[in-house]
């Protein structure tokens, strides 16, 4: 009976560690969203950082509450996020590619340029930006 408060303290510590780590990932991802020079680099750096951050925060919450139905709901949210985030990222990146969103000026596109020309036709010159 005496060990009950110790378990609560342990859960609080582990849970706040998970939540702070997740918040750190989200913060870094958002700074990346502001800093990176081009849409594709932002996309490939950001979505995954945000997914991992949300997963860590939700896992910390499940550890704190320590109930089976809460764990089930959290696992449902995490599974759904991990399935849908790459699909959404792929669809948005494909849309951006077909919409002629420009690449960064140092991106190497030797092999890809012919494919772009073939599918986008006349308006396929990418304007570079820095």
């Amino acid at each position: 009976m005496t060990s009950e408060p110790d378990y609560l303290l342990l859960r609080e510590i582990v849970s706040s560690c998970f939540i702070l780590l997740g918040t750190l990932f989200m913060l870094i991802a958002t700074i990346g969203l502001l800093r990176f020079p081009d849409f594709y680099i932002r996309m490939s750096a950001i979505t995954k950082g945000a997914t991992l951050g949300v997963g860590l925060i939700l896992l910390g919450m499940a550890i704190y509450f320590n109930q089976a139905d809460m764990l089930l709901k959290v696992i449902v949210i995490i599974t759904f996020t991990f399935i849908t985030a790459p699909v959404a990222a792929h669809v948005i990146a494909r849309t951006a590619m077909y919409n002629n969103v420009p690449f960064w000026k140092e991106t190497r596109l030797e092999a890809f340029r012919e494919y772009l020309k073939k599918y986008l036709g006349k308006n396929s010159e990418e304007e570079v930006k820095d």
């Binding site: 594709y40 996309m43 490939s44 750096a45 979505t47 995954k48 950082g49 997914t51 991990f82 399935i83 985030a85 790459p86 699909v87 990222a89 792929h90 990146a93 494909r94 590619m97 890809f112 494919y115």
Partner: peptide, 24 residues
């Protein structure tokens, strides 16, 4: 989906004959 979920790589498009996947 797995290539997209690994940070640093992003799958852009699949060619029409399903032979080539373009990865950023």
């Amino acid at each position: 989906a797995m290539i997209t979920l690994t940070p640093g790589t992003l799958s852009l498009d699949v060619s029409d004959d399903k032979k080539i996947l373009w990865v950023h």
